[in-house]
Simulated scan of single mutants.
Amino acid sequence: MSEQRTVPNPGRLGPLFAGIWLFFLLNPLLEGWSHRDEASGVVGIVATLAFAAAYMSLWLRARADRLRLIESPPLRFSVPYLVVLVLLGAVMVASLGESGTAAIVYVAVSVVMVAPFRVAAPVVVLLVVGSLALGAVEDWGSQVSLAFGVMAASVAVFGMRAVMRRNIALLQAEQENASLAVENERTRFARDLHDILGHSLTVITVKAELAQRLLDVDLERARAELADLERLSRDALADVRRAVEGYRELTLPGELARARVALAAAEIDARLPNSTDEVPSELRELFAWTVREGVTNVIRHSGARVCEVTLSPTTAEVRDDGRGPSSSGSGSGLNGLRERAGAVGATVVTHALEPGFSLQVVRA
């Protein structure tokens, strides 16, 4: 089931502001009250109150639809309301005379509020012409002010709808972008988690099967396999925890996965190891920094066509066939890498190749 999209935190004063405009129905109400002893006055009062209720109901429904990012209410809902408003307005005019024509302005506003422009515009024109024609009724006088009121209110609501239409489009675009961002993050996380765990879990399974077979054949080797199995499990668990925490810490499998994507985007042939199992736990983060720094320099500065990463229990190397760095290995990234390497008793070694450049982190 698709999630219903809505405008967050809608204002609660909207109905109050809309209700204020019902002030202009006071004139027909007072006219009906002044003739409350006559049937026409009672009918006029009832029709006016019913008209106000129908108008507010339509306005509230249109507002609720726009809060759900629906630009126009469905016709099966709005047309009956418009028909009711027209009939009640006709009763107001018939029972209250000229004061009942105030309903025409509300009818025009209601049509503009719920109908498409191509429908609302001709209806408004007809209502303006009809208002002017009412000036021919005896003793009513000119209805230019009524026609102007219909036109001014309709133009104002047209403008409001245009603003709301743009706001709805912006909200829909923002929500679509947010949904795409979440989906992209899920895809990226699934891909990285697969790269982090795929090989490790396979090796763990193979080693567990081997250790089980060796228990009755070579107990010492079985113990060695089980110890290696424990180390691999702990490393895999640490990598997963770091990934779930939002990549606040580097992981060697994660950096290799991101290096593969970055090199492919830079159209550089990536030759990366498929396994990090032989790297000791205490060197995995350092080697992850080595991969990040080395691959970043290859992409930014080398102009290389090929980048190769090699790992061993004591060494991590990033090499390329480009023109080498623009400086002699004195950048802030390499300085930071030297500090991290020194903290675990390793050294950073850089040297030029023919062609290319090599960045190594070695612990003797």
Rank of each mutant, 00 (worst) to 15 (best):
S2Y: 00
Q4V: 15
L13G: 08
N27K: 00
L29T: 08
E31D: 13
H35I: 08
S40L: 05
V42H: 07
V43E: 15
G44H: 02
L49M: 12
F51I: 01
A52K: 08
A62S: 14
L67T: 06
R68E: 15
R68G: 15
P73L: 05
V86T: 08
L87S: 02
V93P: 03
A94G: 10
S99I: 05
G100V: 00
V105S: 03
S110Y: 08
V114F: 09
P122A: 13
V124W: 07
V125S: 15
L126T: 08
G130S: 14
A156H: 13
D192I: 10
H194S: 14
L201T: 04
E209N: 11
L215K: 15
A224C: 05
D228M: 07
E230H: 13
V244L: 15
E245H: 13
L252V: 02
R258A: 12
R258E: 14
A266G: 00
I268S: 04
A270D: 00
R271Q: 12
P273A: 14
S281E: 10
L283W: 05
L283I: 10
R284W: 05
E293A: 02
V295W: 03
V298A: 11
I299M: 14
G303K: 01
V318C: 04
G324V: 04
P325I: 04
A343S: 10
A346Y: 00
F357H: 15
